[in-house]
């Protein structure tokens, strides 16, 4: 059975004014590295946010491990969300808090609420945070404030936060758009590592086709909220590229 099934998903914003997604359907197998590409405003972010219902889909179903996410009660939704890690374009760290505090928020779905409110995380969670931080190479920055870090380091903290959830599925919303090319590759390699070594299914939206070709095992292209391409990275030729990005586009390499 497929890990994630999206069935005729449609999202309409603001009293019928903007159609972000129209009848999107696809399946993702366990362990895939699926890359979403498309222009800004093509619905990539909305699609990712519909999976963990940060955005409520208007119609359609999202089925994860045979469970329909769109029908879950708030409580069950939270239990499902903790299995879904997420990495953001703007990192979305609490800038005034320490790196450790940011990473520990990844455990909020697991610890009892009273413990979380008092800030008393169990010992094993602190140990887990150390492991996650040393995995992304930021152990010595544990007590630094998040806004003292560079962009690439902040995104690594974001990855450590997702690692804390021990996720089965990772959603990455343009994880490298705010970073320079060299840092982009290092971040993408962390995602690739999670995908290969931990068997995490990855759903990432990317701006650059070259990055998508290099890391994705499968590519889905969106245009105006509809799927215009679904296949292996090699199958995107020049004609397909023009169809996705428009006639005037030129492919740019990110090295």
């Amino acid at each position: 059975m497929a890990h994630l099934v999206i069935e005729s998903l449609t999202k309409i914003y603001e009293r019928g004014k903007v159609r972000a997604l129209t009848d999107v359907s696809f399946e993702v197998e366990r362990g895939e590295f699926l890359v979403l590409i498309g222009l800004s405003g093509s619905g990539k972010s909305t699609l990712l946010r519909c999976v963990n219902r940060l955005v409520e889909p208007t119609t359609g179903r999202v089925v994860l491990d045979g469970v329909d996410v769109t029908r879950l009660s708030p409580r069950a939704l939270r239990r499902t969300r903790r299995k879904i890690g997420m990495v953001f374009q703007q990192f979305n760290l609490v800038k005034r808090s320490s790196v450790l505090a940011n990473v520990l928020t990844g455990r909020l779905g697991y610890v009892p609420t009273w413990r979380a409110l008092l800030g008393r995380f169990p010992k094993e969670d602190l140990e887990r945070a150390r492991r996650a931080l040393s995995r992304v190479g930021l152990l010595e920055k544990m007590y630094a404030r998040a806004d003292e870090l560079s962009g690439g380091q902040q995104q690594r903290v974001g990855i450590a936060r997702a690692l804390m959830q021990e996720p089965e599925l990772l959603l990455a919303d343009e994880p490298v758009s705010a970073l320079d090319p060299a840092t982009s590759h290092s971040i993408m390699q962390y995602l690739e590592q999670m995908n290969r070594e931990d068997g995490v299914t990855v759903l990432a939206s990317l701006h650059f086709l070259s990055l998508a070709r290099r890391y994705g095992t499968r590519i889905i292209a969106l245009k105006d909220g509809r799927i215009v391409f679904d296949g292996p990275p090699g199958a995107i030729d020049n004609a397909k590229f023009k169809e996705i990005y428009g006639e005037d586009a030129e492919e740019v390499e990110v090295r």
Partner: peptide, 26 residues
């Protein structure tokens, strides 16, 4: 900044936890 709120919600935190970890530090 709504970003951290979104991120903490995505980890499966409850409403109170979101306020404690994403809103109050800000």
């Amino acid at each position: 900044d709504p970003g951290p709120v979104e991120a903490v919600t995505a980890t499966g935190a409850s409403r109170l936890e979101v306020i404690r970890y994403a809103v109050i530090p800000q």
